[in-house]
Nucleic acid binder design. Structure first.
Lengths: 223, 223
DNA sequence: GATTGATCGTGACGGTGTCAAGATCTGCGG
DNA sequence: CCGCAGATCTTGACACCGTCACGATCAATC
């Protein structure tokens, strides 16, 4: 069973506006904009308010804190991550292929939603113990762990599912974070930069390829 | 002009003080204190200045920017990381054992110098393109890559050294970052928390154990 | 149609980063 | 021994920020 996800997905706009419109959603997307343009460093509640066309204290009313707003962004990030992981693995029968697809989905979220990713794991700017936040994070993790469990079930039952799942998660997270460092490393070696997807392919091959005894693996039913 | 000091190791106090003492070093250690107590969120140049007993603009003179000061802290962190990795692997002949020792050294730095680690990879609060910073980071990475190269040389020459080294680096980095998430996951499963060192052991076993064909591995010359 | 509560604006306070300009000390040439 | 130049630090100011208390405004309900 693992993880329960309570939260609703793209958060449908609160049907009818009270005063101004559905400010919370507007503020959240404005926040994403600001992070995107000025970075988390140049982020400010007042700038968000300005961009949303409301007074400087309006964000405080809905999110209480600056951390509250960023937490909302992080939750949204985890939810889209969860959805993307599910979507990436859907329809792929072989769990190993599914794991690779999930890995690609992970970095795809990192690429397409950099603002969210810049926040999701920065506990110091979030209310780290927000239950909705941890629930959303664990829900996304649950997708990965479920896939690893499926691998264990089909191939080698003695696979330490928890450890492997955490290994994969750590690797993906570290990869997203170290991406720039790797890029500068490639540049220093004067060779074409390695893309995130290439890294994912190589890493998953290295991890998975090693986990399973070749002869014990049944034929893979590809496609 | 950039802030880059010609960085030597523990930075011997500039022999004789000009006015106040060797302010840059004092400011840097004060900065570490502040990060430790108030977190990166509550960090401020003025607080650092107060703690060092100087005026509020003194840090700006030496480090130019708030990012300059944090960059200096990050550089110091990478340097101690480098030293610790070298120290951890010293005297261990078998490169696989050395890799595990290096992994433990990595998380040890994460535990013993949390303030530095809170900064080292946060490009948004650093001058990310500071050459001294990238050099220090690559130097630390080089220790890891050298160890993986030694594994390839002794065991399987066809090992993709770069990829494996990056895999290990990503894993360690992700592990340090996801530590709290894993802790809450353990708590949710109502079992004793897994320590960082345990994670390192399991991850390196999973990675290394899979990389080498068992029969191709020569007897390990332990001790 | 008045009331009530949610929603948002106004204004203020202390704190912050950063810059310019002035003060102070150090080392060095004379 | 003196004075000068430059490095080092302080002072002061400006704009911006987060957050709070309070007032204004609107929606829905009785």
């Amino acid at each position: 069973m693992a993880v329960t996800r309570a939260a609703i997905r793209p958060e449908p706009p609160t049907a009818v506006a009270y005063h101004h419109g559905d400010l919370p959603n507007v503020l959240r997307s404005s926040a994403v904009e600001v992070i995107l343009e000025k970075g988390l460093h140049g982020f400010s509640l007042r700038e968000v308010a300005r961009r949303a066309g409301v007074s400087h204290a309006a964000p405080g009313y809905h999110f209480g804190d600056i951390r509250g707003l960023l937490t909302a962004v992080a939750i949204e990030g985890f939810e889209t991550l969860h959805d993307e992981l599910v979507r990436s693995g859907a329809g792929i029968d072989d769990p190993i292929d599914r794991l690779k697809a999930i890995g690609h989905g992970y970095v795809r979220v990192g690429i397409e939603h950099p603002a969210h990713c810049e926040v999701m794991f920065r506990d110091d700017v979030l209310v780290a113990d927000d239950p909705t936040l941890t629930a959303a994070g664990l829900a996304a993790y649950g997708v990965l762990e479920g896939c690893v469990a499926a691998i264990a079930e089909r191939y080698t039952a003695d696979l330490p599912v928890q450890d492997v799942a955490r290994l994969c998660w750590s690797t993906m997270q570290g990869l997203v974070e170290l991406q720039s460092k790797f890029a500068s490393l490639d540049a220093m070696l004067t060779r074409s930069p390695t893309t995130l997807d290439e890294h994912v392919d190589r890493f998953t091959d290295l991890i998975i390829g090693g986990l399973l005894d070749p002869q014990r693996r049944p034929k893979r039913a590809r496609r």
